[in-house]
């Protein structure tokens, strides 16, 4: 479990992360969404102990992560800008990782490379950008670490490769019970991979939730009544968002569909219609409910 407590980090006197709190449960795939410059990469670098905290603490399995080699052996960080030693091949990089991470398996790397059709003995500098990204991912997965930190790694990967990699990740999670933290500035990139999503905004994790739970408990309803209604009239419902335009009341509600329908019907609406709600919209409404205007 990754525990972030009151994490603060500043660069040149401006706070990128301030009093950030969060918990990433074991064996989940956690997606962290944030605008460019919101501090996602910084947070990952703090967790992988590249940077040091200004305040607060970050613990993995209750152990402090800073400058802790035995714990770092269980963490793999894949940064947004990839680096490989010059003229190294996949095989060379594998040997390098093997020397420093005891859990690394060269055979697993080779089989993953074969599936993705990545050559083992060609210099990584000759690979395309996509191939380099894939190489970084399989080098990471072959390490069989406990924690994976992917910084915008999955943005822009084509669907076929994406599917293959998702299968590899699933196998990894089954066999090694790992936890993954993935960042992106685009929710749509992570929807199909993660089971938890969190929003990093203004230096904090403002909102996080299990995706399935969100999907199952957020509903958008458009209602019309004979008499004009205000928000107070819906006080017995868990409201995310309320809008009154003309004669239409639009509500975004939390709860089970059955219960919501029952409650609304008791108010005898002239019109009651459930409007489709995307995950993205759910997030935007939730953020607004917290008082923030969520910018992509």
């Amino acid at each position: 479990m990754i525990k972030l407590q009151n994490v603060s980090k500043n660069f040149a006197k401006t706070f990128i992360l301030k009093d950030l709190n969060g918990t990433i449960k074991d064996e989940c795939i956690y997606g962290l969404i944030g605008a460019n410059g919101a501090g996602k990469s910084t947070l990952l670098r703090l967790i992988s102990s590249i940077y040091s905290l200004d305040e607060g603490s970050i613990t993995l399995d209750k152990e402090d992560v800073y400058d802790n080699p035995s714990l770092k052996q269980k963490i793999v960080f894949v940064p947004d800008e990839l680096y490989f030693y010059p003229n190294y091949t996949l095989k060379d990089m594998a040997n390098f990782r093997k020397a420093l991470y005891p859990s690394f398996s060269t055979t697993d790397l080779e089989s993953m490379a074969k599936i993705l059709k990545l050559p083992l003995d060609r210099s990584l500098e000759t690979f395309s950008k996509g191939e380099r990204r894939q190489s970084a991912i399989i080098l990471a997965l072959a390490t069989h670490a406990k924690y994976y930190l992917f910084d915008e790694t999955f943005d822009g990967i084509d669907p076929v490769v994406r599917k293959t990699i998702k299968k590899m990740m699933a196998r990894e999670m089954c066999d090694y019970h790992s936890t993954m933290l993935i960042t992106s500035h685009n929710l749509r990139e992570l929807e199909d991979i993660c089971d938890y999503l969190g929003v990093l905004y203004e230096g904090k994790i403002l909102f996080e939730s299990e995706i399935d739970e969100l999907k199952a408990t957020r509903y958008k309803v458009q209602l019309s009544f004979n008499e004009p209604k205000t928000k107070k009239d819906f006080a017995n419902l868990d409201i995310v968002s309320y809008e009154h335009k003309g004669k239409i009341d639009t509500l975004v509600l939390r709860g089970q569909e059955k219960d919501i329908t029952k409650t609304l019907e008791k108010m005898h609406p002239v019109l009651m219609e459930y409007v489709p709600l995307t995950l993205e919209e759910i997030f935007i409404y939730e953020m607004e409910d917290l008082g923030y205007v969520f910018m992509e």
Binding site: E27, C28, I29, I165, K166, A170, R171, M173, C174, D212
Partner: peptide, 15 residues
């Protein structure tokens, strides 16, 4: 099995 289906579908085995 849970494992097989997770790998086939490419989703979190917990799901």
């Amino acid at each position: 099995s849970i494992r097989e289906l997770a790998i086939t579908l490419g989703i979190n085995p917990n799901t």
